[in-house]
Computed example of a mutant assay.
Amino acid sequence: MTSTDSSDASTDDRSTLRANCADCFALCCTAFGFQKSADFPINKPAGTPCLNLADDFSCSIHDSLRARGFRGCTVFDCFGAGQYVSQNLFGGTSWKERPDTSAEMFSAFAVVRQLHEMLWYLVEAAERATTSDRLGPVAQLRREIQRALDGEASAILATDVERIRAEVRQALIGVSEEARGGYTAGAEADESANLHPSVDLVGRNLRSTRLCGADLRGAYLIAADLRRNDLAGVDLLGADLRDARVEGADLSNALFLTQLQVDAAQGDGTTVLPAALARPQHWLA
């Protein structure tokens, strides 16, 4: 991840949900595989170290990943799962020191990443929810996920992630509906631009479209032009923002925006971000 701005101190609940590569055994560079594409210049099988991985688990080309074609690395976010698995679950003993633990460690990393990602969204949901009907399920899910994370690796691997994800999704939809209820622009935009969850807006010019309060969960916003637009109250949960133009846009009050999405977009120094997220270095290059 190549972000640069530090986050606001008010986001302490997310402190363990941010990647700390110094305390990780390069799990994202090892556990997951990738195929040669626009995001990667080579093929790498899952469970094998990246050819750019140094002996100390650092990336030997970290400062030139984009220039060398490894763009996919710069938009990945483990939500703090890497250091949690490396230091908490496996006690600071790496897969190099104990090759016999590698398969379990890599599998646990994949599960913990999903659980941490859900916790990230639930932290925001707790901040936005204003009624007990919304807050109750959010708090219960946070406790359940934390209990799962407090277990051993084998217990984490047995977690019913799909069931929890489905319940988290419903809780987030409820909070989103509540948060977007105060916006009228979203409803107007839905009628005029046919905006809805999972809508295909690839390459669309949305600069003059009123979006406030729109539900764009899972929308395809690849290379969409959102420059200088106000995205207050816009639900961006899971929206694909690769190469979306957000220069001068106000994303400070968008719903369920992640660092991964920000890193994938194209912004600049005038883009306004939520306090919990950082401005990517490549925006300022």
Rank of each mutant, 00 (worst) to 15 (best):
T2I: 12
T2K: 11
T2W: 05
S3T: 12
S3N: 10
S3P: 05
T4I: 15
T4D: 07
D5N: 12
S6F: 04
S7Q: 09
S7N: 06
S7M: 07
D8L: 14
A9Y: 10
A9Q: 14
S10A: 15
T11H: 13
D12F: 08
D12E: 11
D13V: 11
R14N: 09
R14K: 13
T16K: 09
T16F: 09
T16P: 00
R18D: 00
R18V: 14
R18N: 08
A19M: 02
A19K: 00
N20R: 12
N20D: 12
C21K: 00
C21F: 01
C21N: 00
A22F: 01
C24L: 02
F25N: 00
A26R: 01
A26Q: 03
A26L: 02
L27D: 02
C28M: 07
C29S: 03
C29M: 01
T30F: 04
T30R: 07
A31N: 02
A31E: 03
A31I: 04
F32D: 05
G33F: 08
G33P: 10
G33A: 11
G33Y: 08
F34C: 09
F34P: 03
Q35T: 14
K36R: 15
K36W: 02
S37H: 03
S37L: 03
A38Q: 07
D39N: 09
D39Q: 11
F40L: 05
F40A: 04
P41L: 10
P41E: 08
I42E: 14
I42L: 12
N43P: 06
N43F: 08
K44I: 06
P45D: 14
P45F: 07
A46E: 12
G47W: 06
G47S: 11
